[in-house]
Design a binder for these strands. Structure first.
Lengths: 338, 338
DNA sequence: CCTGGCACTCGGCGCATACGAGTGCCAGCT
DNA sequence: AGCTGGCACTCGTATGCGCCGAGTGCCAGG
């Protein structure tokens, strides 16, 4: 176990390194933080911390920088989450409150997160599976061609074309529309398959084919849309670190284009709280020198999607986590209102 | 006027520079291109070209690189558009043909363009104003609360909430829905305002308020959606040029985040053909060392939106233009079919 | 267990040098 | 008149060298 002072030394190293972006030495530490001991003592502590793998020196005769393990300890034990100030909260609320539709909410959230953290922001669109159905609409575009429109409580709209095996009368259509809505409106997507199971039985034989087509399209839509969409912003922030730069930026941009990678990344965060993945903790190789801070957000008590930021492992964790948490909360509020 | 040979020299310089990314000297030119004259002669020609402003040297005693003006001449007079090969065309068609909905079409188009050109691709969503209405749907979510869903012939769907001044009966709603559709279905968005102008008159006084609310929301939607959306991809390609890099990449990423800038950029291309904006021809300062190749695309004969790529001025213009044109064509086809 | 002192390491920086690609110009040739 | 070979010149880049200083590890003493 590390002594209290050694933890403080680690904390000081992380803070200084994050601030200056340069390896930090024992002397600088004692000057900038009142540890109450001499540089020599700090040197001993640093040697110990290095033995334990919390810090490392880029080369002999240079200061120390935190390792992933060091950041991990810092995040878990040494740093809190820095709450947003009241004016910041107000600004967030105002900015998000001005959104006109779901796309706009997501777009604003991305911008906001990127600005607050000065890092790359990633926001997942509210997922279908965990939301509920607000309305299902069926339109006859042609006698045997329907359009299915699905509206969620988060304001998302999905539409699909349906080619029916046989023409479908206007009254049957109205009937189906009414029955469908009475069964699924207000229900969770996950429950829909069970709820519509026996619907075809209520119809004449001649219409059953069409009803089945509609239902299968509806269920398909629910499944397909699990390949969820994301919005990304703040990539220009990647350029804030001019030196280590060409090495790290390339793979990060590539990762950001691979939505699959990103979705996995966000998806990994299973627990209700915030998740921080540091450096090599990220499964994807290109993100080995970045950290990902993510959290779920949702309209009710339940998370419907995730959002987060991607930045260098050398990031201001308390501040970033504070911003991420605050934004997630307010997006949740906005979604609940609309 | 420049002699024929001098034009060939310019063409050779552009080609070599694009290939090697290094200033090209007189000797290398005579070796790689059979110009039939000696380096000394080429030197004279290069001096002349430099006087005219078509090429420049980064520093004394270095080779020459084309200026924006040089590229301009190259694009206008010296280079054609390199057509795609048959296998490439097939690959494009297959890839785009697999799309399931409009979002997917746009997403695939972006990926494709980025891959083909190895540059940053920008695709504008098909615009509302130039497209036609496929269907307008009205849903009663509550007695005095409606949802308007607008479906375009390009498969785009827009929805809006409407709070009515007074409750709106189910029969009136069906009536309005039918009247609306009979008037605007199949018509161009631009014509909609004129077509619905007198609709309120067909309704009882008690319903007119609600009808007016619906119409005004509909018209708002048409206008608002002129703030059109874009999709971007291939930003990782920005890192293909490791040296001049930190300087150019930052402002480009910033520009790409400013949708307004991009929309303007694409919007500038008014003519039917392809537009190439080279370096300083771009109004936006951050893009002064990049070129933008853009073209309109659309389902019918008419362009409904634009797409293009952003890359360094030192790009393979014939190849890029070929790819952009081919992709635009096939996207148009796909949209027309669906 | 902390501290001051001391020898040592090693990366970064400045400077001087050498190299070579490329140029401009000129005199001569066709 | 235009092309060519030759030549002196420029200047950016690469290379090698030496210095400097931050930072370390270790040790002896408080």
């Amino acid at each position: 176990m590390l002594s209290e002072r050694r933890l403080q030394v680690l904390r000081a190293i992380v803070q200084d390194y994050v601030g200056t972006e340069e390896p930090v030495g024992s002397k600088a530490l004692t000057e900038r933080h009142s540890l109450g001991v001499s540089p020599a003592t700090v040197r001993n502590d640093m040697a110990a911390l290095e033995d334990e793998g919390y810090i490392a020196q880029p080369h002999t005769s240079a200061g120390r920088i935190p390792t992933d393990k060091g950041y991990r300890l810092f995040v878990d034990k040494l740093a809190g989450v820095k709450p947003m100030t009241a004016p910041e909260r107000r600004a967030i609320q105002n900015f998000l409150g001005g959104a006109v539709d779901l796309d706009d909410v997501v777009a604003r959230t991305v911008r906001l997160l990127a600005q607050l953290t000065r890092q790359v922001a990633v926001v997942q669109y509210p997922s279908l599976t965990r939301s509920t159905v607000r309305h299902v609409e069926l339109l006859a575009l042609a006698p045997a061609r329907l359009m299915l429109v699905l509206i969620t409580d988060t304001g998302r709209v999905e539409q699909r074309m349906i080619d029916c095996p046989a023409p479908f009368g206007e009254t049957s259509l109205a009937d189906l529309r009414a029955r469908l809505n009475s069964r699924v409106a207000g229900r969770r997507f996950a429950d829909v398959p069970r709820l519509v199971e026996d619907l075809p039985e209520a119809f004449d034989a001649e219409d059953r084919g069409a009803v089945a087509a509609v239902l299968s399209t509806l269920l398909d839509t629910l499944v397909e849309e699990n390949e969820e969409r994301l919005m990304i912003g703040g990539t220009a922030n990647l350029t804030r670190f001019p030196h280590d730069f060409p090495l790290t930026i390339r793979p990060v941009l590539e990762a950001l284009e691979e939505q699959v990678v990103l979705l996995k990344l966000l998806g990994e965060a299973k627990e209700p709280g915030m998740t921080v993945r540091i450096g090599h903790e990220n499964a994807y190789e290109g993100l080995n020198s970045t950290s990902v801070v993510s959290v779920g957000y949702g309209s009710g008590g339940e998370a419907v999607a995730k959002l987060g930021v991607v930045g260098p492992t050398r990031m201001d964790y308390p501040g970033t986590m504070g911003a991420v948490r605050a934004v997630a909360r307010y997006v949740g509020q906005i979604l609940a209102e609309s």
